[in-house]
Design a protein around this nucleic acid. Structure first.
Length: 194
DNA sequence: CGATGGATGAACT
DNA sequence: GTTCATCCATCGT
């Protein structure tokens, strides 16, 4: 399957977050390809969303969010990295955080990067996912519409009933904690938490 | 199981 | 100096 086109990332951001569920994220690395099916995402919006990194304007760190859609925004928090896919037209800072994958490609390689872990714990969190795939700040701003890093749709169809929509993880009480912008596959054992 | 706290680095006030 | 879009070990039930 070809990578998702840029037009995909120009849909409303919550819809992009939802539609990314079930899509395949692949990173082709020197050690081999690795990745999996996206099972958990969160949308971060430009307007009325204090949790968005761009809520206070453009900075050196969040610059990629203001860039073209279909590119990566990678940031560091504590000692881990997190991967977002930039949405909305250039200049409008919105993105989707990828929070968990169901490992399907290169599981052994990912296990090596993460240390010995059960399959369900390899990519069950935004930091774990980046560690497993070998995503770092060097990927900040890169296109996710072509190798080595890309997202594509898979043939299997997705039933609406499988998608759960709820509040985001780790958001402080006065920062839009009540916004229902987290999406995950309700029957997946690979998500970060219930 | 669930709750808690420390690690640890960069951006920002 | 404060604040995290986290993770993991280590408690406590």
């Amino acid at each position: 399957m070809p990578p998702l086109p840029q037009s995909f990332y120009l849909q409303p951001t919550p819809q992009v977050a939802r539609d990314l569920l079930g899509c395949l994220l692949i990173h082709e690395t020197p050690e081999g390809p690795c990745g999996g099916l996206i099972v958990e995402t969160e949308a971060y919006l430009c307007a009325d969303d204090p949790a968005c990194h761009a809520a206070l304007g453009r900075t050196k760190r969040n610059a990629a969010m203001f860039g073209p859609p279909g590119h990566a925004y990678v940031y560091r928090i504590h000692q881990v990295f997190c991967l977002n896919l930039v949405t909305a037209p250039e200049g409008v800072a919105e993105a989707v955080l990828l929070r968990a994958l169901e490992p399907t490609v290169g599981a052994d390689l990912m296990r090596r990067r993460r240390g010995q872990h059960a399959l369900k714990d390899l990519c069950s969190g935004p930091g774990k996912l980046c560690q497993a795939l070998g995503i770092t700040l060097v990927h900040n701003g890169l296109s996710v519409m072509q190798p080595p890093l890309y997202v594509s749709r898979v043939p299997a169809s997705l039933r609406d009933a499988q998608v759960t929509q709820t509040t985001r993880v780790g958001i402080h009480p006065d920062k839009g904690a009540e916004l229902p912008l987290r999406f995950y596959l309700g029957d997946s054992p690979f998500i970060s938490r219930r």
